[in-house]
Design a protein around this nucleic acid. Sequence first.
DNA 1: CTTGAAAAGAACTGCCT
DNA 2: AGGCAGTTCTTTTCAAG
Lengths: 153, 153
Amino acid sequence: MSFALDDLDRAILRALREDATQSAGALGRKLHLSQPATWRRIKRLEEAGVLVGRRIDLDHTALGFGVTVFLGIKLAAKGRVSLEDFERAVTAIPEVQVVQHVLGLFDYRVRVTARDLPDFERVLRRRIMTLPGVGQVEANVLLSEERRPGPLG
Amino acid sequence: MSFALDDLDRAILRALREDATQSAGALGRKLHLSQPATWRRIKRLEEAGVLVGRRIDLDHTALGFGVTVFLGIKLAAKGRVSLEDFERAVTAIPEVQVVQHVLGLFDYRVRVTARDLPDFERVLRRRIMTLPGVGQVEANVLLSEERRPGPLG
DNA sequence: CTTGAAAAGAACTGCCT
DNA sequence: AGGCAGTTCTTTTCAAG
């Protein structure tokens, strides 16, 4: 199930997390590895499903979406409305960036972006609160966010 | 403050969100734009700070970290412990992937990854609960996650 | 904006240790 | 596994329309 990484693989992933644009050649020079050897290791990590892909990082504030809100949603009429129906409806909302099915006090965690607070209120009232089966909703407005490396193997 | 995107810029960002690895030439072909024109637009988006960068997407389950937990943390002794002290301590925990300063019922939202539930319990008891100023803690265990495009300008 | 081109660099392939 | 050499493709920059 899990993939056996050696020190070199870990070093490669650590470096790519810092800068995903660097080439296999540049990376290899840092690790005292040749360009093809580095490239083959990256390919192997991709094929093993460890390195899933590369995604672009957008500044939503620069795009005019200055408000990010995290919602915790508890379904009210469980059993009456299927999780699939709820998920279909929530993922169809344009302002929704991430939908997480979770275990705990809430059933779902949703990341929503809006232009400003009035815009967020519109999304909340007309889109979120009208979702099928929605019960208790908790909201947290994002002030600042910091990403950390996290553990590797 | 915000950047004026035209339809072509939006199409480029939409395409790059689907696949961040595609070349400017391939992208231009889809949009009926030449390779240099597409390349210049991507550069302009980067320089404007809209396209912040590219990051790799890792499968933490494949790396042996099958458990992801979202924590809501409320500080107990506000004023006695500075936010900076708390942030410094929480970002120093290796298992912490994201730290979000938020407004609402909680003061911080934290994304934590662990090998399994016993491992998560260890992190929670020895690392999280011992943080300076930590008060109420709420946890949600991730079952599944779906990322959506989100709005663009 | 376009096309065309050229130089540099990165990605990919085969072969050999 | 890793390195070397070579080919193909992309990036990056230019000139000209």
